[in-house]
Design a protein around this nucleic acid. Structure first.
Lengths: 232, 232
DNA sequence: ATCATATCGAGTAATAAATCTCGATTTTTG
DNA sequence: CAAAAATCGAGATTTATTACTCGATATGAT
């Protein structure tokens, strides 16, 4: 199973897709799934799914598959999504408001406990049940609420400064939605939401298709679907 | 170079990062950049950057680098971001509103010309200068405005139906923000926005850190300030 | 009970991507 | 004007990831 430092990143990116599929299957009332089921849904190779799942430590039964409930739990535990991480959001613009309004981060182990901005027009406001504080209050509030993660949704021009503020407030992990490189110490974990990466692939395919299909198609892998539904 | 069907997807995903860096550098008034400059900013290998750039057809000069303006244009042209694609957005929830309010898609070759939903509460409204139509009007409006791309921001439960509507309206490319795999014909280009993929990587790193892999993400930029970004 | 079948899981092969090496070229420096 | 330094670009090497193969095993059908 699953030594921490040997999990391929592509695997990590696919795991959320599996969770989404599995939850859908769960709603159909089924008790188990096979990798064939999953791979059919996501158009992946079954053995790849099997290998990915093996990292979580789950064990399946030949001819049957995996116990559905256990499998979901195994993946969520593997990703740490069964535990709650306190997060703050910095940058209450359009995207920030959207994320504040998205009230299902709990499923992903994240709970936004505070929001920050510098704009007096939003500071003090209540956005989808979250109070917006001035960025100057970050250190105190981060400590008070034990905030471990920062969600960075400022414009690019403010991103570096805001990330600096986060680090000074003791935050160790940043989910960066700004299209900007952050310059931070090596002990800070930064992950880029990379919105435009997928647009680039799409754009490129639109003109002149990237990978032509005239081939024993190496099962084109667009690391499947996952992400958030914007709320009903 | 730049044979359509031989561009690695990782390369495509990195190209937008290069653009962001280059535009920053441009604002510093510089005329050229080297791959060393870029790789320093993005913490990538210089030869990898060089290989990526070579797909766009740009040619550099030893000891100098690439002409900045030409390079930006080459990448944007390569991605088709120098031409305007008409897009519609389906699903005017939190995320949909955020994307409608983000008025810089033009830089990425995309122009949202209409929005759709089924909810009477938003149909007919004007969101950030975009009129929201009922989904039933999609075929007519798609044709009238020559809409080629669909941005799918419905909840997961509505995603398949909405994608079906798009296809019936003649849309050939879908940027899918819903956490669902779409079941569409092979001629429809679908790209999943993958929000939770990055969260999975981040979560995993927070507990027990992944292999010491050079991650292509941690962006950071030198000086300056400026544009692009998820809007305040 | 026996057989056929679907599926797991481990191992191996093939493919794709990242990294390294090195000669060539341009600019700057002495 | 020659030498040094930086960087390009092609190709080779290494590493990572995906795809394939096959023996084992649980289930359902005959």
């Amino acid at each position: 199973m699953a030594d921490h430092r040997s999990v391929p990143e592509p695997t990590l990116r696919r795991l959320p897709c599996y969770i989404h599929v599995l939850k859908k299957v769960e709603q159909l009332g089924r008790q188990s799934v096979s990798t064939s089921d999953i791979s059919r849904e996501l158009k992946l190779d079954p053995t790849q799914v099997r290998k990915d799942l093996s990292y979580t430590g789950i064990v399946g039964k030949p001819r049957v598959g995996y116990p559905l409930k256990d499998l979901i739990e195994a993946i969520e535990h593997f990703l740490g999504w069964d535990e709650c991480t306190h997060a703050c959001l910095v940058g209450v613009g359009h995207l920030g408001k959207a994320l504040l309004g998205y009230n299902r981060f709990g499923e992903y182990g994240v709970r936004i406990v505070a929001a920050f901005d510098v704009d007096e027009a939003v500071v003090g406001a209540r956005i989808s049940d979250h109070i917006v504080y001035h960025i100057d209050a970050l250190p105190e509030i981060a400590q008070r609420f034990n905030i471990e993660m920062g969600i960075l949704t400022t414009p690019a021009s403010a991103a570096r400064g805001a990330s600096q503020n986060m680090v000074e407030a003791g935050i160790k992990a940043i989910w960066n939605f700004a299209p900007t490189a952050l310059e931070l110490g090596a002990d800070i974990i930064v992950e880029n939401a990379q919105l435009y990466a997928t647009l680039a692939v799409l754009s490129r395919q639109m003109r002149g298709r990237v990978q032509a299909q005239p081939k024993p198609s190496p099962l084109r892998i667009t690391p499947g679907a996952e992400q958030m539904g914007p709320e009903p």
